[in-house]
């Protein structure tokens, strides 16, 4: 997995609430398109007009925001379906970090599996940062420092965020979760051996 340490990049604000993973990537793309090809279909229903041209109302279609590597969203970002292709699609657009007041639970977990950092900040902070990005596109850069757990806004104000320690370590070091769990094979085998006696009906 790709490491995440510190990222200073253009950030785009997409204020829509409840952005669901169906909106991020259509389901038939998930089934048909290879992992590396999903970026061009990310947000396709919002990003493109029915004739295939860019929708000027989609924030990431405008000026410097086309190069955004940080996405600032609204509540419940990535809600809905478990499709990990939503993360692959966003990553395929070049995004490495999403900042929002809250996230869909499964999307949030999927981000960590792909070296993408989801950051939760209070709604008022997110809205303030979003407004600053919109007000001054030429200066629409944020720094996300995972080691220090802060987001630095364009006005240099710093906003601390929480992250669970194991997830932080995994991102900083690019750790492989399956590899780590396989080191615990003896514990898994011991659990099952005991459990088979306690709950034999589970093992069909």
């Amino acid at each position: 997995m790709e490491k995440f340490t510190t990222l200073t990049a253009i950030a785009a604000y997409y204020p829509r609430a409840n952005v669901d993973t169906d909106l991020i990537i259509r389901v038939e793309r998930c089934a048909k398109v290879e992992k590396g090809g999903l970026g061009k279909y990310a947000f396709e229903m919002a990003r493109f007009l029915p004739d295939g041209s860019d929708n000027p109302e989609f924030p990431l279609n405008n000026g410097p925001f086309r190069q955004a590597r940080i996405l600032v969203g609204n509540i419940n970002f990535g809600c809905g379906s478990s499709r990990e292709m939503a993360v692959w699609a966003i990553a395929g657009m070049g995004i490495r970090c999403v900042i929002a007041p809250s996230f869909g639970e499964i999307f949030f977990g999927n981000c960590f599996q792909n070296g993408l950092l989801p950051v939760i900040l209070p709604q008022a902070t997110v809205e303030k940062i979003g407004a600053a990005l919109e007000a001054d596109p030429a200066n629409a850069k944020l720094t996300v420092d995972l080691e220090r757990q802060v987001v630095v806004a364009p006005d240099k104000s710093e906003h601390a965020f929480a992250i669970e320690p194991l997830r932080k370590k995994a991102l900083l070091e690019g750790l492989d979760e399956i590899g780590l769990t396989r080191l615990r094979e003896a514990e898994i085998a011991a659990f099952q051996q005991k459990d088979r006696l306690k709950r034999p009906w589970v093992y069909v």
Binding site: S82, I178, I188
Partner: peptide, 23 residues
């Protein structure tokens, strides 16, 4: 019972376990 993404599907296939944080 809960849903997961593909990376965690692979994790379960390989280990019959999943890494979780208590909600």
């Amino acid at each position: 019972a809960f849903g997961i993404g593909i990376s965690e599907v692979v994790h379960i296939l390989a280990t019959q376990t999943i890494v979780q944080r208590k909600p």
